[in-house]
Nucleic acid binder design. Structure first.
Lengths: 252, 252
DNA sequence: CGGGTCATTGATACGTATCAATGTGCGTGG
DNA sequence: CCACGCACATTGATACGTATCAATGACCCG
């Protein structure tokens, strides 16, 4: 069930088989949502923790003037962290961008039992730090980069994140979102997103056929985007962490 | 030593005295930095975990065109989470905005021993979620709010965060940053920040004397800023979490 | 085949950046 | 104790990136 999540976590830290089984055993049920369905609305009491299995969703806020800001995208393997456990209400909604399958985790068991599973604890904590890093990079993009660079940068980020869970083929992926949604994520208008995409195509940095995006020259696109993947923290766990975990396993 | 941190965490969850002592015992040393000194530079291997004791710092990125984006502010009680432990290099720098005292934690002991302290684990996890929520709100601000609202919103956020650690008196606080820094945080120019502050003063929503900021009518400012403090998640831990923790303490 | 969603393109308006210059307060050294 | 220098704040004029408005085109689904 949680193949993508486990695949993502294992990029950081190999998990003991028992931990993988434990994670899978937490899945209480899975739900299918159509495109544009709200999984959680802002202000609701979150119904536990869930993990995206297939499809694409995004976190968003509606501002007082009615405008929407997309905060982050959720691809297979992305989860709601512990929001649902530790916070009384969400500060943002989550909506499906296309038909999406979501696994719900038994949050009572999760919070009771995770403490005895240091590998999973540490791996999820890493995932949480990665999420933060992605948000920080988004702040930097929206705050200081121009529209052209912003678009290129987000296309690079999506490529790397989808690659991590095996959703790319060569340098091609299914662009999960419309131009309106790109704009809402980057703080620019739909119209201007279109012009920037067009420019990227003219410059042969991307090739788009319907929703399939091909990147003929990834390095060139990354250069145009000033994209440096280090913020995604795709390196594995540092040795001291691995050592501490290995030691902790010897304890009962 | 870690008074502010403990004060902040206790807003979420009361900690056992032994856990407070344990946290304090982790402080290996404390350092004083002058204003404008870098605590950590982007790309460096982080030297463990540290906590701001006094003063003000900020996280920032330098972009390829030389521009700076401030990602978040660090007030007393704020810490570097587990970046220093789980990640091989930082994706951002941290610089002091004024003379700042920083406590360094013994990260070896922290990672070894925190697993046996579920109260601290959960409280720090909450703190990490709050950080994320602050970043999300910043994305929304920069992405979709106009300069006037952005400035007002940040002034509200700073007030609430400083109040949490006892750094406000009535509706007054020491504005920890210059107008250039406000601009770098909000993605607008220094000049425009000045105009927006001026406008807020003309409208009697703020009163600034040197660096001392007074908010004559907090509700009015919050309305102008479309500020809703819920994203700061200042409510305490939900009951199920407290129950689970109470149970876990009975185990050896 | 009709209606809806999404993409595309042009013309115009506006918010904010940028440039340039002056003002103000404060710490430091003479 | 004063004068200089430096960092920060303030203000006006102009330029530019992007929003907004408006309309058409392309595609998909029932």
């Amino acid at each position: 069930m949680l193949t993508s999540l486990i695949k993502k976590l294992q990029h950081f830290l190999p998990l003991p088989d028992t931990d993988k089984e434990w994670l899978n055993s937490l899945v209480s049920r899975s739900d299918e949502f159509p495109a544009h369905a709200d999984i959680i609305r802002e202000g609701e009491v979150p119904a536990g923790v869930f993990v995206v299995i297939a499809g694409h969703a995004c976190r968003y806020k509606i501002l007082s003037d009615g405008g929407r800001q997309i905060l982050d995208f959720m691809f297979p393997g992305d989860m709601t962290e512990l929001h649902g456990l530790l916070l009384k209400e969400t500060d943002h909604g989550i909506v499906c961008l296309r038909p999406t399958t979501v696994a719900r985790l038994d949050s009572d068991r999760l919070i009771r039992e995770i403490i005895a599973r240091p590998y999973v604890t540490v791996a999820l904590w890493w995932s949480s730090l990665q999420q933060q890093a992605i948000l920080r990079e988004r702040v930097a993009s929206i705050g200081r980069r121009d529209a052209y660079t912003r678009v290129a940068h987000l296309l690079c980020e999506m490529f790397e994140r989808l690659r991590l869970v095996g959703e790319t083929v060569d340098h091609t992926y299914m662009l999960p979102i419309t131009q309106v949604e790109l704009g809402d994520a980057l703080g620019i208008s739909e119209v201007h997103v279109n012009r920037m995409l067009r420019r990227l195509q003219n410059e042969r940095l991307i090739a788009a056929d319907h929703r399939v995006l091909r990147i003929p020259d990834l390095d060139a696109l990354k250069t145009a985007a000033a994209f440096d993947a280090r913020y995604l923290h795709l390196d594995g766990a540092p040795q001291p962490v691995r050592d501490a975990l290995a030691r902790s396993r010897l304890l009962p």
